[in-house]
Design a protein around this nucleic acid. Sequence first.
RNA 1: GCGGACGUGGCGAAACCGGUAGACGCAAAGGACUUAAAAUCCUUCGGCCGAAAGGCUGUGCGGGUUCGACCCCCGCCGUCCGCACCA
Length: 881
Amino acid sequence: MRPERYNFRESERKWQKTWSEREVFATGKSDWRPHYYVLEMFPYPSGRIHMGHVRNYAMGDVVARYKRARGFNVLHPMGWDAFGMPAENAAMQNSTHPAKWTYANIDAMRAQLKSMGLSLDWSREIATCDPSYYKHQQRLFLDFLSAGLVARKKSKVNWDPVDHTVLANEQVVDGRGWRSGAIVEQRELTQWFLKISDYSEELLTGLDALDRWPEKVRLMQRNWIGKSEGMMVRFAIDPASRGKLAGEAAATELEIYTTRPDTLFGAKFMAVAPDHPLAAAAAAHDPKLAEFIEECRRIGTSVAAIETAEKKGYDTGLRVFHPFDANWRLPIYVANFILMDYGAGAIFGCPAHDQRDLDFVNVYGLGVTPVVCPPGVDPSTLTVGKVAVDGDGVMINSRFLDGMTVESAKAEVARRLEAHTLGNRPQGQRQINYKLRDWGISRQRYWGCPIPIIHCEDCGTLPVPAADLPVRLPDDVTFDAPGNPLDRHPTWKHVACPRCGQPARRETDTMDTFVDSSWYFARFTDPWNEAAPTTPEVANSWLPVDQYIGGIEHAILHLLYSRFFTRAMRKCGHLGLDEPFAGLFTQGMVVHETYRDAAGQWVAPSEVRIGAEAGERRAFALKGDAPIEIGPIEKMSKSKRNTVDPDEIIASYGADTARWFMLSDSPPDRDVIWTEAGVQGAYKQTQRLWRLTCEIERVVGASRPGKPTNFSPEATKIRQIAHAALAKIEDDVEGLRFNVCIATIYQLANSLSAAIGAIDDADIADDLRYAFAEAGDMLTHAFAPMMPHLAEECWEALGHGTLVAQSPWPQIDRSLIVATHVTMPVQVNGRKRADLTIERDADAKAVEAAALALDAVRKALDNKPARKVIVVPQRIVNVVV
RNA sequence: GCGGACGUGGCGAAACCGGUAGACGCAAAGGACUUAAAAUCCUUCGGCCGAAAGGCUGUGCGGGUUCGACCCCCGCCGUCCGCACCA
């Protein structure tokens, strides 16, 4: 006799051991079967896995196990995104070494992941902080350098004056450093850049082919790349106004960028960015202007300030000539809303058709002339008040452009300005601009990949010779002072110049951690290669990743950087493809109710008892029974203490239950609400499936019958149910609709339960026993990707000597699914009145006649003749009176 | 401000191409078994009328197209997300 209850503790341990001993999930290196690469975004080793990880990895594991059953050679690896600031923060707080802290966390999290029973190939495990990984990253950096994909340039950065380090934009909150609380300064620092903007156009057009990516992510990347088509136009500066400028070499012209050359006759002013060279030149003789520029700089960083800042400007006194009218002069302002690093850092202002320009003009009273008249508006009555006019229309007040459409006016202005010369060059030139900036990767941090560069006073900036890689992080560093420990290390940075041998200085900046995660998916394809980052023919055989799964928060940064890296690696011969991820799925978050006590302090779910009072849900403290306020459902976070520890769930209910609950109910791309009742429900289902399997085993008996040649109607019915359900489950898993898939599994289980209840136990015929055995196998296969431990236990109970994890997906007999008869609803005037069961291939005439003959239909018609009968074969009949 | 997504029972949701709205699950109510509890099993479960059969109504709101609309079109309302002085 099988035990009544399924003991998850015993079974999960047993099957995990079996899988590991038999190396069931190690990916064969020489395997003729088609490849399938499924990958979940690898975790940062913070110390503990959280429910978001459980959800993410449960989904990936369903795909991996399913594809393995479908006959693919599946690659499903795991690693650690192990560099980053938390390790340094921990080092400062607990005086432990970042490496020690990180590797201890990795050990703890690996054990947690293993307790989930994931079908991972642990032999390929990598950690980005390991020299065996970052040595190849340094090699990639040097290859990119030789390929012209690396630049060293000055740029503005967020500088925290207390912590002495650069901060990422995300780490600046309301103009202050997130850790120190100090007001962040804008500093010019020389930084290393990866030239992602070389690929702006390719990264943009490449999105079109990523048809298995969420449209939302593609759109976000499109907006981020921010392509715009416009013109660079040079305006001559009126010599009479140039006295304002300093020096003999003073500028004679001003170049601007515009996407609206058609509105040139609506121009009222010119504006340059506060850090534009012309602004600096004009400020040299104008202390008030210098002060204005300084003020703009101070406000510059804070997002909040930008939102509320009014449009402000300062008239330099300089004047330019309108390109189409030598008698038309326009003033040059320095304005706080012009960005230096976009376009030319200067614009011409057309207030009628640009909201910002209009706001500006309304402050300084420079006037408004509309030049585009929207359709259906009388030009003589057109006025512009507080809202600029955008959109299409007909050109007015624009001399030779009058009457043209916006589009043809743009073309006409472009044609004329390209033909017209200023100096010896065309006055205007069509140009495409992108918002995408080059990627600054320098970080003044210890716990990151060292940039393999040596600075020599005589020879300049030199790459570390390949033979000297890796540039290893020194172990003996201190974190007792702010700033970069590498920079103040007594010896590490002092090296001999690889060219002249004189004393030189090592680069002490390390790489942004996003570099580490930009190519790990490629490393997984051959992590044993010590000589090179990839083995191209192996990498090319696995990549692109067939299914990548992770959070939407990486929609831009990580997913864009990886797309760039793949192209850069292709250029250097490490890969032979463009796109790293053929399929992308972004899963929703795990959310939970929040709780607060009377004092307003957050209370953890584990400290709360949920009860009912007067029919309403109420919460009480486990200790003392004080009432607890139930707050809104929010993303699980430590600060609100609404987290649930996966370890505790796995200990109380088992990994299968945790996985099953994460996959059921909510669509995978939406948030899932974690509830105690939901977990308990999932747990009940594991027991129910186990009981059902035991019953099937009892019906089937000790020896399985062979496949009979004929099946009784009862046996056929069971086979139809099982085959049809499995076919639907295939579709659901392929479409990543796990919640629907689970509903179908429930339906199958319910049907089989009912069928068993209906049979007469006395004498069970072989064909029925066969049908139940087959249905039991199919049911087990159906839930095996979600609850793999229970599935192994059931598989064994059903009399198999093999592992379900290594068994092929059952063959579906499609002829069983197509029934001979169909039942279709019959509507009268769009309202359902009856069901009609008829031969599947009955022709429309026969269906119509049968439908009209139904009592319920005749009654609904009430002797009135049918005006029209619509028959959709195998779907529906609608009788119109 | 710009862009996008979503809105279906008490709750999570399903409905794949315009064809039976609410599959499946949770919660709830009633019952069986039990000394009792847990576990398990059975029944009911969008709203209104009705003992039932059945009828009417119903997918955020208002229109439209269609034999037929959760689905398509137009106009609103609400929620969430992303971007944001990008010329």
